[in-house]
Simulated assay, not measured.
Amino acid sequence: MAHPKVWLVTGASKGLGLTLVQRLLEQGYCVAATSRNKQELIKAVDTTDHHFLPLQVDLNDEGSIQKALDETVNLFGQIDVLVNNAGYGLVGSLEELSDAEARKNFDINVFGTLNMVRKVMPYLRAQQSGHIINISSIAGFIGAFPGFGIYCATKFAVEGFTEALSAEVKSFGIHATIVSPGYFRTQFLADSSLGVPARPIEAYKSVRETQQFHQQIMNGNQLGDPVKAAQAIIEVAASKNPPLHLFLGSDAYELAYNKINSIKEEIEAWKSVTVSTAFDHQLEQA
C-alpha cells in the first residue's frame, strides 16, 4: 500500500476498537488511536510499528481532542477515517439510575462522539474527503431491552445525529456510517465496561434478570467474532458507496427486521387515526 489511509480510532485499548487497530496495522494502514490511558493503550496494541500513533485523549475536553488531531496530522499528513468507538454500557432501570449516572453515559457515548465529529470536520472539509464511522449498537435501533433505557437513549442519539451528519457532509465528499453490532465477544459486558446503578431497586425483577443474564450468561458466549466485525468495517471504509446503516451480526439482522415489521404492522393498524388529523378543507372553505 503506497499511500495508506490514515485512521483515527477512539476507545482503542480494548474491545472492538483494539481489534480494529490491530487489523488495520496488519494491513499497512496508518493508525492514530486514543484511550484515556496512553500506557494501557501501548501495552494492549503491543507494537513498534511506525504507522501507529498512541494518544491519550479526554473526549469531554475539546483541547485534548484538538491536540490529538494536530499530532495525527503533523505525523501522517491527514485523516481519512474517523471511528468513534469509545463508549460504555449502562444497565439499570430509568428510576434506579441517578441524573449523574445518566449524564455520565451521555457525556461519553453522545457528547464525546459529537466533540470528535466537530473537531475533525475542518480537516475533512479542507481535503474534501473522509469517512466518519460512528459505532452504535443494535440497542440504538431497538429500545425494548429492560434495564438498558439510558444506554439505548445514548445510541439512539448517535444514530439520529449521524443520519443528519450524513446529509450535511455529503456535498463535501465525506461519508458517514452508523455501525450497529449485535452481541460480539469483547469486554463490553465485563465489569470494567458495564456500569450498574449505585442504588438498585429490587422491585425491578426484569431488570435484575437482564443484568444477571448479560453479566453471567451472555458475557464470554457472544456469537459475534470481533475480528470479523473489524474486517467488515475496513471493507465498508474502502467502498466508494458505503452504507449509512451497517448492522453486524445475525442477531442484529434478525432484531432489526423484527422491529421494522412490527412498526409496519402498528402503522397500518392505526392508519385511520394517523391520517385523520389533517384540517378539514370543506370546513375551512365554509
Rank of each mutant, 00 (worst) to 15 (best):
253 Y>Q: 04
140 G>Q: 06
15 G>I: 11
215 Q>I: 11
138 I>L: 07
202 E>S: 14
71 E>Y: 00
258 N>R: 06
56 Q>N: 06
125 R>W: 04
94 L>V: 12
218 M>A: 15
4 P>C: 08
181 P>S: 04
193 S>Q: 15
170 K>E: 13
206 S>E: 14
197 P>V: 11
268 E>M: 05
257 Y>S: 00
253 Y>T: 03
87 G>R: 06
29 Y>T: 05
173 G>S: 04
78 Q>Y: 03
87 G>Q: 04
138 I>V: 13
136 S>K: 10
212 Q>L: 08
186 T>N: 11
282 Q>R: 12
77 G>L: 14
90 L>V: 02
275 V>P: 04
245 H>R: 13
114 L>V: 03
127 Q>K: 15
30 C>H: 09
65 I>K: 02
13 S>T: 10
110 V>G: 00
159 E>F: 04
93 S>V: 00
168 E>C: 05
15 G>W: 11
156 F>M: 08
161 F>M: 06
96 E>T: 02
131 H>Y: 11
104 K>Y: 00
178 I>H: 04
208 R>S: 09
268 E>G: 00
228 K>D: 13
159 E>N: 09
130 G>D: 08
268 E>W: 02
115 N>R: 02
141 F>L: 15
24 L>A: 10
8 L>T: 03
64 S>V: 05
73 V>P: 09
44 A>W: 09
144 A>P: 03
226 P>Y: 14
215 Q>W: 06
283 L>H: 05
208 R>V: 01
242 P>N: 01
137 S>V: 11
195 G>D: 14
176 A>D: 05
201 I>P: 00
